[in-house]
Amino acid sequence: MRAAVFHGPGDIRVEEVDKPEIEEPTDAIVRVTHTAICGSDLWFYRGESDRDPGTGVGHEPMGVVEEVGEDVRSVEPGDRVLAPFAISCGSCEFCRKGLHTSCVNRDSWGGDNGGAQGEFVRSTHADGTLVRVPDRYADDEDALRSLLPLTDVMGTGHHAALSAGVEAGEDAVVVGDGAVGLCGVAAARRLGAERIVAVGHHEDRLAIAEEFGATHTVAERGDDAVDAVLDITDGGANHVLECVGAASAMETAVEAARPGGTVGYVGVPHGMEGGLDLFSFFGDNVALRGGVAPVRAYAEELLADVLQGTLDPSPIFTETVGLDGVPDGYRMMDEREAVKVLVKPWE
Rank of each mutant, 00 (worst) to 15 (best):
G181W: 03
D305N: 08
E203P: 12
C103R: 09
C183T: 08
A83K: 10
L230N: 06
P327D: 04
E211H: 06
D171A: 12
C103N: 05
Y330H: 08
F282D: 02
F44I: 12
A287Q: 10
A3C: 07
P25T: 14
L147A: 04
L130W: 13
G165L: 01
L241R: 09
P77S: 11
H159S: 06
T129V: 10
H216D: 15
V175E: 05
V104L: 15
A4R: 02
E194S: 14
M332W: 15
W43I: 10
V72G: 11
V321A: 00
S108D: 08
G275Q: 05
P61Y: 03
F279C: 08
E48K: 14
L191T: 01
D171I: 01
H216K: 09
G213C: 03
T35A: 01
T262P: 09
D135S: 15
A338S: 08
G184S: 11
V121W: 03
N285F: 14
T35I: 04
A214V: 00
V199G: 11
A172I: 05
E93H: 15
D41S: 10
V14I: 10
G290Y: 08
E60S: 14
L144C: 03
G114R: 05
V326T: 02
R336L: 15
A143N: 03
L241E: 09
V17Y: 01
P134T: 13
D284A: 14
V292F: 13
V185F: 02
A219G: 12
K19Y: 00
S88I: 08
D50N: 12
P149N: 02
E170R: 13
